[in-house]
Nucleic acid binder design. Structure first.
Lengths: 235, 235
DNA sequence: CGGCTAATTGAGAGACGTCAAATTTGGTGG
DNA sequence: CCACCAAATTTGACGTCTCTCAATTAGCCG
């Protein structure tokens, strides 16, 4: 256990102020205590770094503290599909609770700070194990909802609708008039939405011409969210 | 609690021999005991019956004992996407552990037998609650893997590849040479794979002509699984 | 046997992918 | 600060896969 910690840039990870616990007022304190008793590492990764690869032993799970990462899968003929963009406060890589191997590949989009927690730590944990498992369960159900919505996007919508609702969700919670850093390349947006670079680019160009969105210095801004919503949901 | 049970065709549900527990040797007995202490109903539904509707209060979760059901979501413009086909031994409808409302709509494909368990039962449960929550967690992670694979299918594959890998997974575990009842209509297959009835029908017809598959009395049989696998995975 | 729905098949259109070229962007070194 | 290069993005032309619309056939139940 101490091997992990000393073997790198790692330092003990404090779990304070993690969004991971949002909405769990009831068990919050117990769970917080539980996770803090775990041996964990606080690690930094540069941008475009692979944290783990699909089909390798899933020995640790992670809490993302700063930055963004992408989880992706690849078909046998080499097409990559981005499953999810992980945001700060979310957990990822918990395949090890059930399976031997990771199900996806995790790659950083930006420099990233994570907590790395060996699954074994949790298995051997005594009293607080249940609280953590409950947390994982809750996170899983949330992720499942997200996955269901994405299945609906990919299965039942066309390119414009997909991109529009992606942009809306990406800019969600941003004060109108302000921009949001769009840390994804055209290729990554395409791989997320099941499209090609060119179609994504064309839609961006068209919507810029129409004054729906604006983009400068990798920052995206929605100018006409009302119309974009219509594009996303109605047709 | 007794209201639920007496208010219908319900009878106490015995959780023996449920695939729900597969692969959990470690906690099997504890979990089994835990679920058996819960107040639950054994219910029957005819075919094409709605068990619950999306966006209605998620007061119960279910264990499917016999038959098949489909979980689906609908876009605002009315397109339906089937998220998953639930098979016997699987649990579904556990949104209530996190959210107020169901995330999907559950409709039976065939006459069905389910165990219905009020979420409240679990909340008020004392000693075995943790084991059940752990079971839910494990099921959730499994479902998440399944959802990831489906995202890859819908996002990165074309019609033929999707239908081929669907057929392969549907007939998985069937002794070669034997057929499997295909309980889905063309429309349902289309809604599952994000295609239209016509493309599904055309692919079926083409593959029948080519001698890849055979179909009679709603029973499907894979004749050339080797070539079908090539269609599904390579291109 | 008649009537209904599901499934098949065809023709045509449209959306999206593919390929290729042009343009922009970002980073690096002079 | 500018020139230069590689990579990312944009744009255009074209092909094709899949959808749409419509007509036909098959399957099922009364």
């Amino acid at each position: 256990m101490d091997e992990q910690r000393s073997a790198g840039q790692g330092q003990a990870c404090v779990f304070n102020e993690l969004g991971f616990f949002a909405g769990l007022a009831e068990d919050y304190l117990q769970a917080l205590q539980a996770l803090q008793t775990l041996e964990s590492d606080s690690l930094h990764y540069p941008a475009a770094e692979t944290i783990y690869q699909a089909n390798t032993p899933a020995s640790c799970f992670y809490v993302l503290r700063e930055g963004h990462i992408k989880l992706s899968k690849t078909t046998l003929n080499g097409k990559e599909q981005i499953i999810k963009i992980v945001r700060p406060g979310e957990i990822f890589g918990f395949d090890g609770f059930v399976d031997q191997l990771y199900n996806q590949t995790a790659v950083t989009l930006r420099p990233v700070k994570v907590c790395r927690i060996p699954v074994e730590q949790l298995r051997s944990l005594r009293c607080y194990r249940h609280e953590v498992e409950r947390l994982i369960m809750v996170s899983c159900i949330r992720e499942l909802h997200y996955a269901d919505n994405r299945l609906l996007e990919l299965g039942a919508k066309r390119s414009g609708e997909r991109l529009a609702s992606f942009l809306l969700s990406w800019c969600e919670g941003v004060t109108p008039g302000a921009g949001t850093p769009l840390i994804l390349s055209r290729l990554e947006i395409a791989q997320l939405l099941g499209l090609t670079i060119e179609t994504v680019s064309r839609l961006f160009a068209q919507w810029k011409r129409q004054g729906l969105i604006r983009e400068q210095n990798q920052t995206i801004q929605i100018l006409d969210s009302r119309y974009l919503r219509r594009l996303a949901f109605s047709s």
